[in-house]
Write a protein that binds this DNA or RNA. Structure first.
Length: 243
DNA sequence: AATGTCCGCAACCGCCACGCC
DNA sequence: TGGCGTGGCGGTTGCGGACAT
């Protein structure tokens, strides 16, 4: 009964990785590639749990990691993505090249949370702290699902007074939509505009084609471009005094 | 200089989702 | 179709360095 352990814990090292262990892991993955983490430690001659190897590689040893401080652009992007996706660190990380979910999670908890609180913004709801307290029934993170973008699209704002003023659309849409300023707060407009113009749906605009069921889903080159578009201003959080 | 406290980061743990048989 | 194995994710912990007293 019960789950089988992922490794023989009594024969594995724990704690900080040594330089030699790092070198062994890197050398093995260079030679054989990623995969089958369970058998990797033994094959690589490491007294480590497979999960530990995976984490070490993904969070620290991967050659495409971008080490160093987060830029202001990355800061803003993380905040925006978090307001949309909640604590879906892996989804957020997928849109920040060279950053890992663990790194972003740590950065959020140590820096951004404090930064937002300092501005009087609740880091969970992304609303002014007082307003968040006044609307305790609002749930920024709906029940777990595998299709986050569907949730975002399908859940209308439960609080009419909610003033996130979240508007997502291709940059050109803002000028074309006459009643842009008159729209209620927290409207996700892209799906509507997509239907009218045949453009990207909200999910695709976030680079979520894989999960998206719209006609634009599965487009090979879309994700990267959409990601850039997102960064270029497809998200408009006008109520957030970020700078 | 010694001690205590705070903070940031790496790593661990437990659960869940998915694929295979 | 259900069980099992594995990978992946998010929350949490604990260590070590920085800073304050």
């Amino acid at each position: 009964m019960g789950r089988s352990p992922c490794c023989e814990k009594e024969h594995t090292n724990k704690g900080a990785w040594t330089k030699e262990e790092d070198e062994r892991l890197v050398a093995y993955i260079r030679a054989h590639g990623e995969g089958c983490w369970r058998s990797l430690p033994k094959a690589a001659g490491l007294l480590r749990c497979g999960k530990s190897c995976r984490l070490r590689w993904i969070n620290y040893l991967r050659p495409d990691l971008k080490r160093g401080n987060f830029t202001a652009d990355e800061d803003d992007l993380i905040i925006k993505l978090h307001s949309l996706l909640g604590n879906k660190w892996s989804l957020i990380a997928a849109r920040l090249p060279g950053r890992t979910d663990n790194e972003i999670k740590n950065y959020w908890n140590t820096h951004i949370r404090r930064k937002l609180l300092g501005r009087g913004i609740d880091p969970v709801t992304h609303r002014p702290v007082n307003a968040a307290a006044a609307t305790i029934s609002f749930h920024p993170q709906p029940p777990p699902t595998t299709k986050e973008e569907q949730l975002i699209l399908s859940k209308p704002p439960k609080c009419p007074d909610l003033n996130l003023d979240l508007c997502i659309s291709p940059p050109s849409c803002q000028e074309e939509d006459d009643d842009y300023e008159a729209k209620p707060a927290m409207i996700v407009r892209a799906p509507e505009l997509q239907r009218r113009r045949g453009g990207l749906c909200f999910g695709c605009s976030l680079g979520l084609q894989k999960e998206c069921k719209c006609s634009g889903g599965g487009g090979g080159a879309g994700a990267g471009n959409n990601f850039l578009g997102l960064r270029a201003g497809m998200l408009d959080f006008r109520s957030l005094p970020m700078k």
